[in-house]
Design a protein around this nucleic acid. Structure first.
Lengths: 146, 146
DNA sequence: ATAAACCCTGCACCTAACTCCTTAGCAAGA
DNA sequence: TCTTGCTAAGGAGTTAGGTGCAGGGTTTAT
């Protein structure tokens, strides 16, 4: 009689059972306790960890980074490093947010100027000026400075 | 004498020259005109397209979707469909933004309650209540309703 | 006139992150 | 007891999105 079984966890967190096994194998989640049949028996602490994994994954962490984080957690003695990782990821997330905003601006600009753009394209009048317009947008300021 | 060569384009937009060739092969960008040596000769209209491709890719479009969009553009006669794709992507971008905000909330919560969490973990007191706390967060409302 | 620094093509190869397949054990209902 | 449905393990296969390499041509500076 499992506390929470593989299928429930799948439904709850949204990782397939194959993925859960995969994550355990590569070390993204710690080895899960088993019941008398050798079936995985997920505990609240495991779910908690899975929530965090999902969150960090959504935030864009690679599996490699997640394994690193899991190791720190299991070794126990490195809380500041763990907290630092979380803070660093929060920072990255904020940067990504800002980048997305720039992308949205470009997309909005493209939609606004769509008819005009098509007309130019058809008449073969697409010129460097239009590219310059794009170039001036926030979206590409990062590149420009390189 | 190329208008703009492969390397310049790389620097400008941030796709490697191998990637540019790959994109051309799979149809994400139209066949680029060549100079007398058969070297690619990127024109403003191509750069304009590449800007848009970069933008849509950053916004999370798959190569498949980009190829679809490129085909529509090259066939010429389907502006409403093209504009619709842009608008659809803008919509997706907005959704992703919202999702990111939820992820950020969870991450902030995790950082705020980090010491507390560690203490509980060490004493083996991690229980269903904590998981319930996470469960109540916005971040997981989507799943919950499934 | 030779080397350095570009460019071309086709195709094999790579990495990340799963996902599926096979073979097999346990378990609860008709 | 037979069937249905869960679980296990290991390993092969898949997909997306490139990346690298061999073998060749061109251009420019020295």
């Amino acid at each position: 009689m499992s506390f929470i079984n593989r299928k429930d966890v799948s439904k709850l967190i949204g990782f397939s059972s194959d993925t859960l096994r995969y994550y355990e194998r590569i070390g993204v989640i710690p080895p899960i306790k088993r019941d008398k049949n050798g079936y995985r028996d997920y505990r609240p602490v495991d779910l908690d960890w899975l929530f965090l994994v999902k969150c960090l994954k959504d935030a864009g962490l690679s599996m490699e980074a997640l394994i690193e984080f899991a190791k720190l957690n299991q070794s126990g003695e490195n809380e500041p490093a763990q907290k630092a990782i979380l803070q660093e990821q929060l920072e990255k997330l904020n940067q990504k947010s800002a980048e997305m905003k720039r992308t949205r601006n470009l997309l909005e600009y493209k939609i606004d100027t769509f008819e005009d753009h098509i007309a130019k394209f058809k008449s073969g009048e697409m010129d460097a000026d239009h590219v310059d317009e794009l170039w001036k947008m926030d979206k590409f300021q990062v590149h420009k400075q390189k």
